[in-house]
Amino acid sequence: MTSVDEQETQTQLASAASSEVIIEFDKVNKWYGDFHVLKDIDLVVHKGERIVVCGPSGSGKSTLIRCVNRLEEHQQGTIVVDNMTLDKNLKNIDHIRSEVGMVFQSFNLFPHLTIIENLTLGPIWVRKIPKVEAREAAMKYLARVKIPEQANKYPGQLSGGQQQRVAIARSLCMNPKIMLFDEPTSALDPEMIKEVLDVMVELADTGMTMIVVSHEMGFAKTVADRVMFMDEGEIVEQNEPHEFFNHPQHDRTKLFLSQILHQ
């Protein structure tokens, strides 16, 4: 126990802003049955870093980020999130899940609860915050995603873009240290994509650590510190966005970029 504490203080002392490591994958492997989805993944994410992950369908992007909060279990290697190793220890998993927010392609709001109830559920039941405080905080986040007036509606009454912003606010209500986004805009009509991306850009400006699976290259260029290209379960190439888009090194990256740019 003490050694962990020591480590923590050491890293904190050593780190100015972004040198503190918050997620570390070390030789992570995962299989679905016989199918090798993640192959020897090594990845270090620093606090406050914003990473955009792209790659063809089926390359393992979702699987990768779902390993961070253990919606998927890996079979080999170690994953350390917020100084906790992800293993069979359920306490660690619960802790990490409450520190890591996640936004899904299909929103996954709770349809039987109103927007405000969707937002306060976690704080009230997991964080044990009094109802009144939870509501106040939730209203603050709803204002931040620019839909405070929808608080008492049900998710089914909102547009896709609004639902996705509620989903972002719902994650933020838990005060996460890390936010994961799995193709947050790909289920949306084009006119709604911008409103969601705007919210994400604002979130990035607050210094949140973000991993975003997305093919929105404009977003990647303006926000990302690093763009990662995955193919067939490997991280093929990663670089800062300008270099990544203008001077891709690997052939597979070049092919992929040419495909998505010529759509």
Binding site: V100, G101, N108, L121, S171
Partner: peptide, 8 residues
């Protein structure tokens, strides 16, 4: 999954 990610 959504329930798990908010820590339930």
């Amino acid at each position: 999954e959504a329930a798990h990610t908010i820590g339930l």
